[in-house]
């Protein structure tokens, strides 16, 4: 250890071997914003239920069905959005003017209309042709909306791969589809995964909008309970805390996953 000691201010001396002078996330110890929020939210829930079981314990018992529906909507929407996003991203990169045009217009239109309006629109537009359950139109609407954002993520991910990779694959006689499938997309996946994780969390939060389509998600269940018991403040406190705990938990999961992938590189 190259310990340099200065008699006047021994504490400010940094030895060369002490590592980076810039604090890393680990150095912050227990008090990261994430820990404060997550543990805080959990403690508040426990305290509320413990000290005031009526109505908080009743609310807590009522909400899990809604959490399940929220997850259903989120997972189904994200899967469908991934498929739409992949094709949109490829379309945006296509040299074919028509395909490129369709993909670009789709992205522009969807990004220009509020999600809530899209939800209503697709629900009633679909309703005119076929009688679909609210859950289905909710999933379709969410997927159509997020597919546009996902498309931009895919596009950026594919564009981030060096063009030499494409050239090498093509020079070996691979078709553009084979090149995409075996060479470009597997590499782009690493770039794409973190933003997709973020979209997942964002979609989970936005899925609360589907409660207006009579889908009994977390928020809808809360509204139902509140309407019966007139405990609006207490119910929405719990609903907000539930969303917070879920999204914080998921964000953490995603960042752990990112680090794992980073290490593998």
């Amino acid at each position: 250890m190259a310990q340099v000691t200065d008699s006047k201010s021994p504490k400010t001396v940094i030895a060369v071997t002490d590592g980076s002078a810039i604090p890393t996330r680990r150095d912050l110890g227990l008090f990261t914003a994430w820990r404060v929020s997550f543990v805080g939210a959990l403690l508040i829930v426990i305290a509320l239920v413990g000290f005031k079981p009526d109505p908080y314990w009743e609310i807590l018992k009522f909400l899990p069905d809604g959490i399940v529906v929220t997850f259903q909507v989120t997972v189904m929407s994200i899967l469908l959005a991934l498929v739409i996003g992949l094709f949109t991203g490829l379309g945006r990169l296509s040299n074919n003017k028509i395909i490129n045009g369709i993909a670009s217009v789709y992205v522009e239109v969807v990004r220009g209309i509020p999600l809530l309006v899209q939800l209503f629109y697709i629900y009633f537009a679909l309703g005119r042709i076929v009688n679909v359950p609210p859950l289905t139109s909710a999933v379709v609407a969410m997927a159509v909306c997020y597919g546009a954002y996902m498309g931009e993520i895919f596009r950026a991910g594919i564009e981030s791969i060096h063009k030499g990779q494409r050239e090498a694959a093509r020079s070996l006689g691979m078709t553009s589809v084979q090149t995409m499938r075996y060479v470009i997309l597997p590499q782009a996946f690493k770039t794409i995964l973190p933003p997709i994780g973020n979209e997942f969390v964002a979609l989970l939060k936005d899925s609360s909008l589907v409660s207006i389509l009579a889908v009994s998600d977390l928020l809808r269940r809360g509204r139902e309970f509140a309407a019966q018991s007139f405990t609006y403040f207490e119910t929405y406190t719990m609903v907000a805390l539930m969303y917070l705990i879920i999204t914080l938990f998921l964000s953490k999961l995603i960042s752990i996953m990112e680090e794992r992938i980073g290490v593998e590189k």
């Binding site: 060096h162 990779q165 050239e167 090498a168 694959a169 020079s171 070996l172 006689g173 060479v183 590499q187």
Partner: peptide
């Protein structure tokens, strides 16, 4: 292209 092998300055191996 199957009949033409190409070697690049920057190798371009699939990482």
């Amino acid at each position: 292209r199957e009949e033409i092998g190409m070697v690049f300055q920057s190798f371009n191996l699939f990482p």
